[in-house]
Design a protein around this nucleic acid. Sequence first.
DNA 1: TGGCGCTTTTGATCTGCGTCAATGCTGAGT
DNA 2: ACTCAGCATTGACGCAGATCAAAAGCGCCA
Lengths: 247, 247
Amino acid sequence: MDIPPRHSDHEAHAGCALRSRGDDCRFCGVRHLSICQALDINELDQLEKMASDSVYEERAVLFREEDEVSSVFNLTAGVARLIRSLPDGRRQVTGFALPGDFLGISLAKKWRYSAEAVTPLVACRFRRSTFETFSEKNPHLIKKMHEFASQELNMAQDHMVLLGRLTAEEKLASFLVEMKKRWARVAGHEQGLIRLPMGRQDIADYLGLTIETVSRVINQMQRDRKLVIVPDGVRFVDQNYFDDLAL
Amino acid sequence: MDIPPRHSDHEAHAGCALRSRGDDCRFCGVRHLSICQALDINELDQLEKMASDSVYEERAVLFREEDEVSSVFNLTAGVARLIRSLPDGRRQVTGFALPGDFLGISLAKKWRYSAEAVTPLVACRFRRSTFETFSEKNPHLIKKMHEFASQELNMAQDHMVLLGRLTAEEKLASFLVEMKKRWARVAGHEQGLIRLPMGRQDIADYLGLTIETVSRVINQMQRDRKLVIVPDGVRFVDQNYFDDLAL
DNA sequence: TGGCGCTTTTGATCTGCGTCAATGCTGAGT
DNA sequence: ACTCAGCATTGACGCAGATCAAAAGCGCCA
């Protein structure tokens, strides 16, 4: 009821061709971004046999908080929101997963957050038990997973500063700069357009604000000629303004 | 200038004898809490040769954000605060490290936060390069480090919900319940006294509040007979009140 | 035993952001 | 083209918690 359905354009592909594993890991478009970068051709072949591509449509639920972790996911296309909910309905979006991101890095028994497709998305899926067995035999995969987890921990700490100590304006600026950087990494180069496939409510729940404040601040930035709002995103007009404000 | 010196009682020992490695890992009081639980006696012997005990006095700096990671630490006694600072002086305490906690889990090149002794503290220190070499040869140590990192990631996500979506009263209740649980784990059993060796400013910076709000909310709880404030901590009077409010 | 430095507490006032309510916009279906 | 559903935007108002200011508590040391 609070999940925003959006225009069904295929945001999944970040300006280039749709990145999907297809049936051959060797040609996977997100391999260099994902934990698979730790594997050689031979190991990749083994892993491929365990994988199955899953496609989700917009707003589909990949898994829910408290569910058993039966599968782990390597996102190949699209965007997911990761959500923690309180009993009374308050939500905190703990992150957005982009192509190359891995869901299930902790190898815990139960999910500690829900994941929902913000756009149509494609994920390379593994049975948890199979994946865990494989990783036990590949120490450099564990090492790589640990690197990814450490990176996520850094981002989580950044986000704590944002949530605890930034103003609404600084939060929005930081968020936009973060999205710009992350899309650049996925696309392989900077982009003029900063894609925002998630709705205002998701942004609000990510930044610890209300939807009204998000709307007000972004529109004020547009009035002040700091950015322009375009379909599915924004474009920076005054990059310095954002660099100065962002965390 | 904003670091509160406190009564110099030795909070380090959590109600029992001071836990320190001494010179023999086999008798280490925090072994069962720390990543060393992954090692057998033989491996423990090897690791011991690489370790040196470091003692820090209250308010001492273990390392600073942006510093090279030259050593990693296994806390054996005392409490440290982990801090991210903004250029203008705003601070976010991202966590408190208790005995058994490991600092440097990410094996990154640079620290992303500062660590300061809240109480006198003792840490088992390793040169980063030495520790990394050792871990490369011990896959189950990497696995254990990954487990610890995953656990920290969970706690970080909990904290995002707290910072983004809880009221001041809920934040305080969650914090106190968290400290109660963590001290119980260190001590091996529940304790009536919830030790709060950190000052009000640290609590405020952890919860994304001001020192005045922290003081007001805790004192209001006392007036409402939910808890009593005692030297170096608090005691719950109405446990249900806290269980209901806490995240 | 009194004064000093630091932290905590308490009170008065202010304000950034939330809440409530209404209106506008856009795409999909008929 | 019209309508409906779901967001997004905008405005008016209120409040939780910040800010500003002062007093009180506490350990330390001469």
